[in-house]
Computed example of a mutant assay.
Amino acid sequence: MQSPTSTATKPPARAKNRWAKLVWIVPAALVLLVALVLAARWLRELPSVQSFLTDYPGESHLPATAPVGFPAWLAWQHFMNSFLILLIIRSGWLVRTRSKAPAQWTRKNQGLIKTKGSPVKISLDLWFHLSLDALWVLNGIIFFILIFATGQWMRLVPTSWDVFPNALSAALQYASLDWPVENGWVSYNSLQLLAYFTTVFIAAPLALVTGLRMSGAWPKNAEKLNKLYPIEAARAIHLPVMLYFVAFILVHVTLVMATGALRNLNHMYGVQDGDSWVGFWFFAGSLVTMVLAWTLARPLFLRPVASLTGSVTKN
């Protein structure tokens, strides 16, 4: 006969099944990856595909007036965007998954979120998420102004239709592990260009408009507007957009490290084209800053900051 203690500590069957499914994800992913590489290498042996790769090497030509290299402000923008998006993803995931908020925040001046009756309260996690969103939007506005003022937009926006076959060519080269020649200081390959364009001009605005729809700043009494843009639609889009950012970051960091780490880090952080360690040390400092911010982003440290703009109460 089993004791009550032994039955109480026995994990439920449902939890076991969930972990059993997760265990198979890694070997299944490895098998798919190997199959993809083999298929890509087989395709590259076909004469028609070799001809296609010759006609479309993987990079579209930029306009003659496109700038070369990266200015210092773009390196700073890259760091700020990475810093904010990391914490936005973390706080957004906590908002979605935490069953009990560590504290509630009430704005001192209700302003746009004022409603009839008692003041609106939101969780401390949601306050942090929305505060980060506001900083991210401000950073994004500065970014958009500067890229169009300096011509850097030409490195991010497709200007000819051959970007699509060239992107397919670059994808095939990546998949076969015989990667396209990288020269990001001058221009991105077409697959990178489309990925950056999607991130900057599609995913980021979608994150903004869906997040705004779910926030307290959205007008609750605008019946026609709310019917045209229901909150359920915003929720259905917001999470996939977050997952897109996670996937983009993972692939982006992997390729940065695998296609000439020192040179790539110099482009993004050192504002120079070369293989020195300058960009690496700036990158290392940014990682330390992110880890420190991730560690401090907890109720103990968030409460006093949140109390500067509202009242914070425990549940």
Rank of each mutant, 00 (worst) to 15 (best):
L194A: 07
A236D: 06
S6T: 15
G260E: 02
I122F: 08
T5C: 08
L300Q: 15
L228F: 09
N139L: 09
K10W: 10
L265P: 07
W19P: 07
L296K: 11
S6K: 07
F245H: 14
V31F: 03
K224V: 11
G274T: 02
A306C: 03
F197G: 14
P47Q: 01
F83I: 06
W93M: 14
R41L: 00
E223C: 13
A167C: 02
Q2L: 14
W76K: 12
W19N: 15
K10I: 08
A134Y: 06
L146K: 05
P119C: 05
L94Q: 09
R107E: 09
P180R: 02
Q173W: 01
L250E: 05
L302Y: 01
I202D: 03
N109P: 02
A15T: 11
S190Y: 04
G58E: 04
L124S: 04
F52D: 04
W76V: 15
L287E: 08
V68Q: 10
K16F: 02
P230Y: 00
Y56C: 01
R155S: 12
Q272M: 13
H252D: 07
G279P: 02
S276C: 03
S6E: 13
V26N: 07
L36D: 09
A101P: 02
T54M: 08
S6Y: 12
T313L: 10
L130A: 13
W127C: 05
A64Q: 11
S190E: 02
T295A: 12
G117Y: 02
Q192R: 06
L130T: 09
Y269L: 00
